[in-house]
Amino acid sequence: MEKKYYPISIFIADVSNSSADNMGDELTVYLDEMVQAINIWTNEMGPIKVKHRAGDEIIFVGYGYSTAYIIAFFLSRIWKYRDHKPYFGLSFGDINQKLEEVDIEKWIHPLIKQARYANDLLKQDQNRPLFKFELDQFYTSPFLYNQFRNEFESLFNTLLYLQYSLIKEQTTIQESVCSTYLIVQQQKAVGKLLGKTPPTISSHFKKGKSEEILHSFNEISNIINSLQKSSYQDIEIKSNVLSHSIREHVKENINTLLAH
């Protein structure tokens, strides 16, 4: 009997400087809140596995090649603590069992190892970008992109590093404009929420390179979706559903986001 495969993605997230400023307890509570938020955001995505563990770590596994990256990007933009930012080791690929059957605390799989390896590389990087993919270690995909996985990994990580270079140059107000625009999708609405005039919002949006940052997010997601579509033509890609769900739920607490 031919094995049935399922497309999944994984992130393992840690928090920078989590032991500084006596922030441990506060960050622990916040990470629990983020796990609850992820469960709500993914309610229409089918089964997922997400857990806060090992103090300042979150592990996520969900169906869809782009799911983990989309969630990670939104988390990074709405994150409450500017001095304690998260960083995400990412992987995606294929498994031959349903997620419903997986015990995330005991699951040993090469894709988990890849995400862990990517996270460890970020931990050792003095510049520490927000995201890193690992696709070329420990694991061989049964599908077509396998023969190009090293090239895709290099492409993604180069784009992510350039994205990070733009993000880290944003001022606090530019960061707020970019993050709010990601959620509400209109500069006029951003201005209303932030109490700024349209020209001021436009200026911060341009100077903060928000268009380039958000374009890179969309392009990376689209490329990953294309890889999944080439291997799983019969499986619906729900990245738009996920992004819409995140936006709608974050809008309900938008004032909390803007207070950061």
Rank of each mutant, 00 (worst) to 15 (best):
E2D: 08
K4N: 07
I10T: 07
I10C: 03
A13K: 05
D14K: 05
N22S: 08
N22F: 03
M23D: 03
Y30C: 08
V35K: 12
T42F: 03
N43C: 11
M45G: 09
I48P: 14
K51V: 14
K51A: 15
R53H: 13
A54D: 06
G55F: 04
F60R: 01
Y63T: 06
G64Q: 00
Y65P: 12
S66H: 00
T67R: 00
T67A: 02
A68C: 04
D83G: 04
D83R: 00
K98A: 02
L99K: 09
E101Q: 13
E101C: 08
D103W: 08
I104F: 06
H109Y: 03
Q114Y: 03
Q114K: 05
R116A: 13
Y117E: 10
A118Y: 02
N119P: 05
L122K: 00
R128H: 06
K132W: 12
Y145I: 04
F156V: 03
T158W: 13
Y161G: 05
I167K: 11
C178G: 13
C178M: 13
T180P: 14
V190P: 10
L193A: 03
L194P: 12
L194D: 09
T197K: 14
S202R: 06
S203R: 14
S210V: 01
H215V: 13
E219Q: 13
I223M: 06
I223D: 02
S226G: 15
K229S: 13
E252C: 04
N253H: 15
N255P: 01
H260A: 15
